[in-house]
Computed example of a mutant assay.
Amino acid sequence: MADVEDTVMVYWHACEARDWERMGTLLADDMVYHLPQTRERIRGREAFLQFNREYPGGWHLSVTRVTGAGARAASWITVDIDGEEQPAVSFFDLDEAGRISVITEFWPEPYEPPAGREHLVERYAVAEVQPA
């Protein structure tokens, strides 16, 4: 298994570079992406890659910190979206092959998701328990 911190750093570098092919090699086929603030979940590598390809606006990110051990890591990033900086904290779980299987990402405040990604996400209730 690759070092979890290295995997997360490569993931963020691929994201910033819009290198979706490289990012795809880091993801498990059945990966799940959780956005608790908007109560959205994306299932599957292809849907997650498409979500990122279609994300609107001019954005860039910088990594502040990545820490992890075993098959789990957390990262703190700052994203500049059209001139407005927003911090985010992401938690990563890797599968036995060292691929990212779960990402749970927290943004500063709850918000309603932007229109146009309904075909890629499912909404869930606030009280729904997230998998470990």
Score class of each variant (00 low, 15 high):
P131I: 04
T67M: 13
F48H: 13
V66R: 05
Y124W: 15
R123C: 01
V129E: 14
D29K: 13
R72V: 10
T7G: 04
V79L: 05
E109Q: 09
M23L: 09
M9K: 04
D93Q: 13
R65W: 08
A73K: 05
Q86E: 02
I42N: 10
P110G: 10
E5H: 07
Q37D: 15
G68T: 05
R22A: 11
D80Y: 00
M1D: 06
A14S: 14
Y11W: 09
G58L: 03
R72N: 05
E105Q: 12
L27P: 09
G24E: 03
V79A: 12
P131C: 00
E46A: 12
L61H: 07
V4G: 03
Y111R: 04
D3H: 11
S101Q: 15
M1N: 08
S75T: 10
R72A: 04
E16A: 14
V10F: 11
A17Q: 13
F51K: 02
G44L: 10
T78S: 10
L26A: 07
Y11V: 06
E122A: 13
M9R: 15
V102K: 02
P36W: 11
F51M: 00
G44W: 02
A74V: 11
Y11I: 08
A71Y: 03
R18Y: 02
F92L: 00
T7L: 06
I81F: 12
R41Q: 13
A73N: 03
E40M: 15
M9P: 00
V89W: 15
H60D: 10
D95E: 09
Q130L: 10
E54G: 04
E5P: 05
R72T: 10
R53V: 15
W76G: 01
V10T: 11
V79S: 07
D19G: 04
A125D: 12
E122C: 01
G58K: 02
Y124T: 01
A47C: 00
S75W: 12
A73V: 08
M1E: 12
V79N: 04
A127L: 13
W12Y: 14
D3W: 11
I100E: 09
W20R: 01
A88H: 08
L120K: 01
M23Q: 07
V102H: 06
T25K: 05
F91E: 00
T78K: 10
E46W: 07
R41Y: 08
G98N: 08
G98V: 01
A127Q: 09
V126Q: 13
T64S: 14
E54P: 00
R72D: 00
W76R: 14
R53K: 09
I42T: 02
E118V: 02
L120N: 09
I42E: 05
